[in-house]
Design a protein around this nucleic acid. Sequence first.
DNA 1: GATGAATGAGCGTTCATTCAT
DNA 2: TATGAATGAACGCTCATTCAT
Lengths: 220, 220, 220, 220
Amino acid sequence: MSEEVQRAPERAKRLPRAVRERQILDAAVSVFSRYGYHAASMDEISDVAGVSKPMIYTYLGSKEDLFGACIRREAARLLEAIQAGIQPEVAPDMQLWHGLRSFYRFVAEYRESWTVLHRQALTVGGSFAEEVTAMRGRAIELVAALVVSAGSRKGLAAEAERSGEGLAAALVGAAESLADWALDHPDIPDGVLASWLMNLVWLGFNDLVEGDVWKPTGAQ
Amino acid sequence: MSEEVQRAPERAKRLPRAVRERQILDAAVSVFSRYGYHAASMDEISDVAGVSKPMIYTYLGSKEDLFGACIRREAARLLEAIQAGIQPEVAPDMQLWHGLRSFYRFVAEYRESWTVLHRQALTVGGSFAEEVTAMRGRAIELVAALVVSAGSRKGLAAEAERSGEGLAAALVGAAESLADWALDHPDIPDGVLASWLMNLVWLGFNDLVEGDVWKPTGAQ
Amino acid sequence: MSEEVQRAPERAKRLPRAVRERQILDAAVSVFSRYGYHAASMDEISDVAGVSKPMIYTYLGSKEDLFGACIRREAARLLEAIQAGIQPEVAPDMQLWHGLRSFYRFVAEYRESWTVLHRQALTVGGSFAEEVTAMRGRAIELVAALVVSAGSRKGLAAEAERSGEGLAAALVGAAESLADWALDHPDIPDGVLASWLMNLVWLGFNDLVEGDVWKPTGAQ
Amino acid sequence: MSEEVQRAPERAKRLPRAVRERQILDAAVSVFSRYGYHAASMDEISDVAGVSKPMIYTYLGSKEDLFGACIRREAARLLEAIQAGIQPEVAPDMQLWHGLRSFYRFVAEYRESWTVLHRQALTVGGSFAEEVTAMRGRAIELVAALVVSAGSRKGLAAEAERSGEGLAAALVGAAESLADWALDHPDIPDGVLASWLMNLVWLGFNDLVEGDVWKPTGAQ
DNA sequence: GATGAATGAGCGTTCATTCAT
DNA sequence: TATGAATGAACGCTCATTCAT
């Protein structure tokens, strides 16, 4: 409601270390997500956290360390949220759908976490991009596995097999892009977003599996 | 006399303004794409451009102005490249396919342009993200129009209509993500990349248009 | 119960103040001697001492106070060591020799003490340099007295009288410099070092006392 | 006369690089000599130099680089001053005497140079101490060579030979210490200071060379 | 037209020092 | 008694930007 930056309660004193660390990480995620790694300043983070700068260095280390801690915490949160939404006993398509719903629920609820992971982590040199990319890779593999587990029941078509990795990358990109789009359309329920994507994933792949590929027609 | 390779002395010789501006923009795109907006330094840009710093300020204005000029020039290049590849007289699916091919050809040939547009422009606060997002929006609309122009011949299903904009966003994201993936797999020809995506776009949409939607089964 | 080496728990157990002060001073001397006054950090001192930082401030005061306490304690130790080595009943030259031996023995055994006094105390602004310089002055006077006590038996030559204080300063510097040199040559016994210096002091002074001075020859 | 720190003329503008570098080095030597390496601040150096801080970094590099440049410049100055004072055609003792006179003249005229070299350079970790120590080593060798060139005419006694390096270190220390002492006694002419030291060097060594050594008497 | 010279402002980081328990 | 928690103040360094030539 307030149009000011949300600040931690005024000068609470002598809190245990774990609490302070959480405050700092919360503030850091917020500031990093708003400005990006380079434009964010430790001064602002400490202001938002309601903590002096030396505390940050004592508890979380350098700016780079702090950013890394943010990335790791938010990545863990995201993965946890997705896994919590999946019920392993249902059919693969329903697993995928539930996973997507959890994903869109998470993105809607923790926009800042999502922004840090999706936008900011990739522009910082060093190992952060790699870490996030690796996580993305795991997501791609997971999607591919689920899809294939359905496709294998029918005998996966040669075409689908060849394009597998690339298509998975495309699909993960589609899911992310839809997440960004959904941030500007908060009225669309996560179930619907997930269904849209399922239609792409499921129908498109099913067609492929059945050998029903699109091919360019005519010259060139 | 000189024992060096014979070469016009680099000490800039009154080049016309347009040439200088191109030098500077080329250098800026290269440096921005490598380090991102904030981590890039005007010093390095002027070094790479072979031009003194005041020159940059005289011709292109502030760092932010310079970045904006880069974004606009590269965006125009990209759009131009795509439009040059499209033949308006062919069928919509072939138009889309040719557009995608041109897109992947451009990304492969001008990685730096693509990086600046796709990765760096979105992390800078201010109007850049909006500009690029707007361009993305135009791309989304264009894709949607092509798809719909095919769909409308069959009577676009209600489902497809409702999910249109969101799905388009997803598809653009898929195309971008596949572009990134393709940067690490330069051996895949652009025609193949475009075909992969067409299979997603066309088959998926066709299914939708025919009312063949995926739906969650069971409770919840 | 514990699987560690049995050892009184380091978690300090109400040790008497004097013991704590000694721990702290020992650590401080060690750290100051290694890094110098400014580069030494209270954190490292408290770590080495195995004592919390507030303890240091409670017992020894500020960093400057602490350094002063180090200087004074080590200076007292050095003087004490030298005086303990001197036998007042023997001839002046033997007194000087014994004093020097004790000095070199001390330097070899307590390098850190010597480093703090000789190297670090002089570069800190304020009163420390003066204190150490004053101590040095007392040493100079003592040497001069011993030398003169021998010389006076022969009637001190006018030249020696005039140059007395300066030459004493030079001799103390020679002794100190030889001490530094000896730190890199630990195999030379202190008696030998002392003898080398005696040859400079005694023979040189004796010559002077006997009026056998060196004089520039020729023009200028 | 003024009791304020001497400042460079107010904001002289657009000077050539070489001039600025000299201004900066002058200021740096002055500030480093007063406070030592660690306590000196780049802000104060830039104030005293009448130059902004970025200039220092542009022209001379980091604080450590700057300190190194000071050390090297002043060391070169000192060596140059000494060598300029030596006349190679005169007798060895006169060469030594002239060298010492030049040394004391230099110390009196450029106290700050001397302070930086003698006191401050040794307390900074890294290669500075080694550099200065190496220079000191060359001085020691030079003194030893001159002394020996006289001694060899008489056949250098075994004792002198054995104690050679140590005694040389002692003598250099004596010269340095006398230099410090002379800073507080500016009325003593450099010729006199040099003579005092000659008496130590020449007479002491001559005695040694003639086998006239001091030896401890009695027990222990 | 073109640039070497110059800086204000700010950032990441550290350190001596003090509360509250 | 003893300390974990906390910070004000400063420092080294860099960068976008401009002026004088």
